[in-house]
Amino acid sequence: MIGVAIISLGALGLLFGGVLAFAAQKFAVEIDPKVQMVQEYLAGANCGACGYAGCAQFAEEVVAGNAPVTGCTPGGSAVSGKIAELMGMAAPEAEARHVAQLVCLGDCAVAKEKFTYHGVPECKAALMFGGGPSACRFGCVGQGTCVRVCPVDAITMSEKGLPIIDKDACISCGKCKNACPRQVIDLINSKTYHYVQCKSQDKGKQVREVCERGCISCGLCVKNCPADAIRMEDNLAIIDSYICTNCGTCVEVCPRNTIA
């Protein structure tokens, strides 16, 4: 009896094996080996910073010529150089690394709160409720949406209610920047030293009422900047990082210590 079973199962196995072998030949999908290689070069965080669904799709698009070789920000110039070489292009100029930087100083010690919020711990939910607990209309809401979206856990929440960003761990994917409903996270050129840590477009008097560290648009930094890199826009000082010479004058003159 056992012989029949062995023969019949063996025959079935051969039959299906044959079918599979045929299908593998007949319906084989040709993949450009470059896609595989590009994917190996990539950082592999699947963060989506390139604008595609993940590393695999980005690799396909790069090889197809639809995406720039510099698209992978977490990989930086090392990865873009390798991809460019593979694609037979000149290696792109090494761009400065951009890292996420919180541009608000309004923790619970310096910024006033309108009320205590006890709802869903999500910035968007807090804003649905009376415009959020912070008295400043432009400041950090402090519910930690950025902490949760960071794919590499580079953001933690301080006890005072402001996110702390680990710049070495940051892969510049920009997810926190996009998730922040108040847009108080910027991607800042890591070589630039000076930036204004405030986003308030309120007039000086209103800023003084709600925050001890916010920009009061006094204009001292604009007047004193030797390189004319600072301008005042919507009651807020803005430093042009391409002109800034990192002299540090603005940091010294700022009466509110808003510039770092």
Partner: peptide, 9 residues
Amino acid sequence: RPLVQWIRM
């Protein structure tokens, strides 16, 4: 769990 609050969001 704040279920209805999440649903409202």
